[in-house]
């Protein structure tokens, strides 16, 4: 009976997220346009300036478009993670987060459900992007499209958990723009999404160190290897560890006795 209740709730939360996704087609299109602009324009422009040596998992010289595709998949997941946390800040301000939190299930479970629902939407977007990239001649081995799925899910969960964590500490919607600037851009540019680590190391040792510790780099590498049917164990462990840490802090952030509701209440009192 109790198990059924948990499953019903998961089904309900996922269904709601999918319905919202269907109703917000502009959101879907804009989420796709962003990485496509990078692929079609940025990557084409930089193709000649950035030479990429043969590095695993690639076995030959590759075009820059091929190199940045996993990074752009990461970008989709990153923006989605932040977007769903943005929607949580919005939900909280609008009150619909309250209806979720007052239902008779443990809060950690509700947050994880919300996270899973967000990742599902992000993965759908990632596959749509891969399909378009396929027609643009950025093609991975066929089995790669299957093996990349767990990597997308794990990375999506990690970035979603980061978004959840941020949403638990952001009091108001207005503060979110700052987070975009201070989290999304540094995370994306200080990673292996656009250039390999050795290239960064050539220019700055400090940036190299930061980029290699950036969990987003590890998520991108996990996706990159998985897309070619390989497991990057270090990236996998690193991403999983980051997921666990972010999730625990987020759950603490949403705890009624010390979390964000409390502080927000302070402002509303």
């Amino acid at each position: 009976m109790r198990v059924m209740h948990y499953l019903q709730a998961l089904r309900g939360i996922v269904a709601r997220e999918l319905l919202r996704f269907v109703h917000q087609r502009e959101r879907f299109v804009s989420a796709l346009v962003r990485p496509l602009v990078w692929l079609f324009i940025f990557a084409a422009g930089f193709r000649s300036t950035l030479g990429v040596a043969i590095i695993p998992p690639y076995e030959t010289y590759i075009l820059y478009e091929v190199y940045i595709t996993p990074g752009l998949l990461g970008m989709i997941l990153l923006f989605n993670g932040m977007q769903s946390s943005l929607s949580m800040v919005y939900d909280r301000e609008m009150g619909s987060m309250k209806t979720l939190l007052v239902c008779p299930l443990p809060r950690w479970y509700l947050l994880i459900d919300k996270l899973l629902a967000g990742v599902l939407v992000a993965v759908l977007q990632a596959y749509t992007f891969l399909l378009i990239a396929w027609f643009y001649d950025v093609q991975a081995p066929l089995e790669g499209y299957l093996t990349v799925l767990p990597a997308l899910i794990l990375s999506g969960l990690m970035l979603g958990a980061l978004g959840l964590l941020l949403s638990s500490f952001i009091k108001q919607l207005e503060n979110f723009a700052g987070v975009m600037n201070f989290v999304i851009f540094p995370m994306f540019f200080l990673s292996t999404a656009l250039y390999p680590l050795w290239k960064i190391q050539e220019s700055s040792e400090l940036l190299y160190t930061l980029a290699s510790y950036n969990p987003f780099s590890q998520a991108v590498e996990l996706i990159r290897f998985a897309l070619y049917g390989q497991l990057n164990l270090y990236a996998c462990v690193y991403t999983s560890a980051a997921l666990i840490v972010f999730l625990i802090v987020a759950i603490i952030g949403y705890n009624p006795s010390r979390g964000m509701m409390q502080r927000k209440g302070g402002a509303a009192a």
């Binding site: 019903q8 309900g12 709601r16």
Partner: peptide, 11 residues
């Protein structure tokens, strides 16, 4: 309403 019902475990 279905969303809410599922949160409360209604079939």
């Amino acid at each position: 309403l279905h969303y809410h019902a599922s949160l409360h475990g209604l079939s």
